[in-house]
């Protein structure tokens, strides 16, 4: 993991990339014979992270990019800050072999890319890591949620959504609104009708 230096000018990048992508997208560029490949993810604030290719496959967004042949150079993720991306990369590493996404991967996989990627049940250690992973404040949790949504990583989504759900569990309506920063758009009559239907829930 190394901090990325400032890249070259945009125009240069734009000219270079098509040349690098000259191959057919049907042959994933990063898959050599055997050995694990890594790709480099680059956060919005120019931090670069090396990720095992197979770990990165946990994200549907990244997988599509890789399958499209975008994995050669550092992959820019402008919407993720360095700290967020660092956490996400760590989670990908810990979730290696997580059946939540590996099943799906094996279904779509065509060329034996992931044959050594046996799904395994999350161990207690992984679960402990997950708990640790989301024990952050609200804003950080929302950063992670948005990252999970953007990356379309099922494992990450599960962990973060579970944490958000835990946070609002047993809250009153007003507390939930405050937590998510939502505005009440009911008319008083409508709210009264709602409450009447489920009075016991609002005690």
């Amino acid at each position: 993991m190394s901090s990325g230096d400032s890249g070259p000018s945009s125009s240069k990048q734009l000219v270079q990339q098509p040349a690098a992508a000259g191959r057919s997208p049907n042959q994933p560029p990063l898959l050599g014979a055997g050995g694990r490949k890594v790709i480099v993810l680059k956060s919005g604030d120019e931090e670069e992270f090396e990720v095992d290719l197979l770990d990165a496959m946990q994200s549907r967004t990244l997988r599509r990019a890789i399958e499209d042949g975008c994995g050669d150079g550092p992959m820019p993720l402008p919407n993720l800050t360095g700290p967020v991306l660092a956490k996400v990369v760590e989670l990908f590493r810990r979730h290696r072999g997580d059946p939540r996404w590996a099943d799906e991967l094996q279904e779509t996989e065509k060329e034996g890319m992931f044959k050594d990627y046996a799904p395994q049940k999350p161990t207690a250690e992984v679960k402990g890591f997950d708990r640790e992973f989301v024990s952050v404040d609200r804003d950080a949790l929302f950063d992670l949620l948005r990252a999970a949504n953007f990356l379309e990583a099922p494992g990450l989504l599960d962990v973060t959504c579970d944490a958000a759900a835990d946070a609002v569990m047993n809250m009153t309506v007003e507390e939930v609104r405050e937590y998510f920063g939502l505005v009440n758009d009911y008319t008083p009559e409508e709210e009264a009708a709602l409450r009447k239907q489920h009075e016991w829930a609002f005690q």
Binding site: S10, Q13, R60, T61, P76
Partner: peptide, 13 residues
Amino acid sequence: VVTDDGMHVSAGV
């Protein structure tokens, strides 16, 4: 989005 490094674009569905 196209900034100085020209990389603020990501592929994804």
